[in-house]
Design a protein around this nucleic acid. Structure first.
Lengths: 157, 157
DNA sequence: TTGAGTGCAAAGTATTTGCATTCCA
DNA sequence: TGGAATGCAAATACTTTGCACTCAA
């Protein structure tokens, strides 16, 4: 039994909102996926609740975000990626070649945020930080040197 | 007379592509704007070429990116933001409250990229780096402490 | 019981694509 | 002239919204 669902019930109760199975399904799916677009979440939820509509996924994710249970980032192309708020102590490395997203625990990210705060007064949300680039396996596959720009005329992003 | 346009002609010729006025307009607009969404570029271009269609803006930006003349990042919500490739030596600070985008020259960004490369083999494109957060003026306006999450139920992003 | 929450379908918004026409090389 | 590039409109993808029905409290 996922602990997040328990937390969810508590948070919802605290706000006088209703704990519905749909909301649990969406949260469970997201927990299982780690990070995912609304579309992927919907796919995943279909397995346990075939009638749950995309609208509900969008509405639920928005609500969960407002409640501070989940957060989202804009990785690559179009769809935003959601993940548990408790899962926010890392940054995302998004490969523009294969579209893969890996997480990284990087201390320097905080140093960067600190510097930006000191010099520009800008308060960075480190949890939403994502780096665009090329992952290790893609860099190995393609001809590392020259290919970077010329090779993929149609990058993932 | 913008120097970028001269460079554009050269780059296009080198690839056997045609130098059309539309392509110059798009590039000029982007140069003037600094960084902008396809939509904003189109708006700007309307002033000099009212008949230029949105499709052409999209196609041109895609081409220019492939040519390495411009680059894009995903700032806030949906629309990608384009900027000149020569303009890539900075990172973006995107305010989720007011949507404003400011640029910052931060040395630590490179250090962060270096650490990620060393530990994960991930090659970061520092030019695409953007930080999500709250800008100085917004932080000052809203109640800085508690309000961060509770206040704006509907953040810009 | 009763109104918050859901499902469905229609409406938006952003971007892409097909094709006939235009015009750069 | 000949084919690349454009403009227009239709097509897609993604997300939001209106409304009647359902069900958690």
């Amino acid at each position: 039994m996922p602990e997040v669902s328990e937390e969810l019930d508590a948070v919802l109760r605290a706000r006088g909102l209703r704990a519905t199975p749909q909301r649990r399904f969406v949260l469970d799916a997201l927990e299982r996926l780690g990070h995912a677009t609304p579309d992927r979440v919907w796919e995943q939820v279909q397995a346990v609740a075939p009638s749950l509509s995309p609208s509900t996924v969008y509405r639920t994710l928005e609500l969960l975000e407002e409640l501070g249970v989940v957060a989202h980032t804009h990785l690559g192309h179009g769809a935003p990626s959601y993940h548990l708020a408790t899962h926010a102590d890392h940054i995302h490395l998004v490969c523009r070649r294969c579209g893969d997203v890996q997480t990284a625990d990087v201390r320097r990210a905080q140093q960067l945020a600190d510097e930006v705060a000191a010099r520009y007064g800008f308060v960075t949300d480190v949890g939403h930080l994502s780096l665009d680039g090329v992952c290790a396996s893609c860099a190995a596959t393609a001809d590392g040197a020259t290919g970077a720009r010329a090779a993929g005329t149609k990058p993932a992003s």
